[in-house]
């Protein structure tokens, strides 16, 4: 990554973290309906992988999808308005946090069904192959999702058809209260690639440059028609499973440990040490984004509710 790209990447990660911090604060105040899962700690994955894509490329996301949305270029106003169920939201308030999508930017949906997006990305890649339009599809999913049958079926199918898809596992060590080490037969999700003849690597998911390098290789391979790859990115879950999770199932130490390697601090420190970034510039970035967040919340909360008479709208074409 060039210095410029690293700065861009840092900014993109910072945006996601600050977005999620704000979500936590606003959720605690009440008024944000439903439940939300934050992407904090995994920023380098969305930013690194999506940074390796073209705008027309496709992604499928998860219940923890705010980071993917922001990194793929979804408009901030539309995201926040969606979290509040307003007609001005990306899904016109029909979806909410767990079902947020932005098809205009190739974001084919968060998914409240664990593993639900994996096969959809395979389908995106199939469309690309049939249409010959060169698009690549990326499936984001958690370590827990890799225990769903559909993960295994999707890898096999993508492999035999040599589809342009990249499977990106965000391994945060936990699926709700269940540790990865208990629930999976392998010590690394990357080990699962071999069963489907899919090249797989495991990288530190808190290291933006490492994620980006691995993603670029996988995307290039897909784009050249050489088939799918599996990319495991390890980034411990910094926060509760959802906002408000008491997390009694994991000890303080485990939770603290998960916060040790911070993708943002880590890159910022490097860039400052190398003289590419100043503390003042970093603060200016924060301030600017914070202002944008304020305006997005104002926009969202001023937005109209959907009309109850429209409850059956959008069911069919």
């Amino acid at each position: 990554m060039t210095d410029e790209e690293q700065l861009e990447g840092l900014l993109a990660m910072l945006r996601i973290r600050m977005f999620e911090d704000r979500v936590r604060t606003e959720f605690a105040k009440g008024g944000m309906p439903g439940f939300v899962h934050t992407y904090s700690g995994a920023e380098a994955i969305a930013v690194g992988v999506i940074g390796a894509l073209e705008p027309a490329d496709l992604i499928t996301s998860t219940h923890r999808g705010h980071g993917h949305c922001l990194a793929k270029g979804a408009p901030l106003d539309g995201i926040v308005a969606e979290l509040y169920g307003r007609e001005t939201g990306l899904c016109k308030g029909r979806g909410g946090s767990m079902h947020i999508a932005d098809f205009a930017n190739g974001m084919l949906g968060a998914n409240a069904i664990v593993g639900g997006g994996i096969a959809l990305a395979v389908g995106g890649a199939l469309a690309s192959q049939v249409l010959g339009d060169g698009r690549v599809a990326v499936a984001f999913f958690g370590d827990g999702a890799s225990n769903e049958g559909v993960f295994h079926e999707s890898l096999n199918l993508a492999s035999i058809w040599s589809l342009p898809v990249v499977f990106v596992c965000e391994n945060n060590g936990w699926a709700e209260s269940t540790p990865f080490s208990y629930a999976s037969s392998v010590s690394s999700i990357a080990e699962r690639g071999v069963a489907y003849s899919i090249p797989a690597v495991s990288v530190d998911g808190t290291d933006l440059t490492a994620v980006r390098a691995a993603a670029s290789a996988a995307v290039a391979r897909a784009r050249q028609g050489n088939g799918p790859s599996l990319l495991e990115c390890i980034a411990p879950r910094r926060e509760g499973h959802f906002v408000g999770d008491p997390e009694e199932y994991r000890g303080r130490e485990q939770a603290d440990q998960a916060r040790e390697s911070d993708p943002i601090d880590r890159l910022a420190e490097q860039l400052v040490a190398r003289g590419i970034l100043s503390a003042e510039a970093l603060n200016a970035m924060r301030k600017d984004w914070s202002g944008q967040l304020d305006r997005a919340y104002e926009f969202a909360l001023a937005g109209p509710w959907p009309d109850p008479l429209d409850v059956e709208r959008y069911v069919y074409s």
Binding site: P33, G34, G85, R86, E87, C91, G93, R94, G95, G96, H99, W305, P306, D307, P308, L309, D310, V311, E312, Y314, V315
Partner: peptide, 16 residues
């Protein structure tokens, strides 16, 4: 209930 998936937005869900 209404003949749709369950909507997220509170006024829609209440109508559902």
């Amino acid at each position: 209930a209404a003949a749709s998936p369950v909507p997220f937005s509170p006024p829609l869900e209440d109508a559902w």
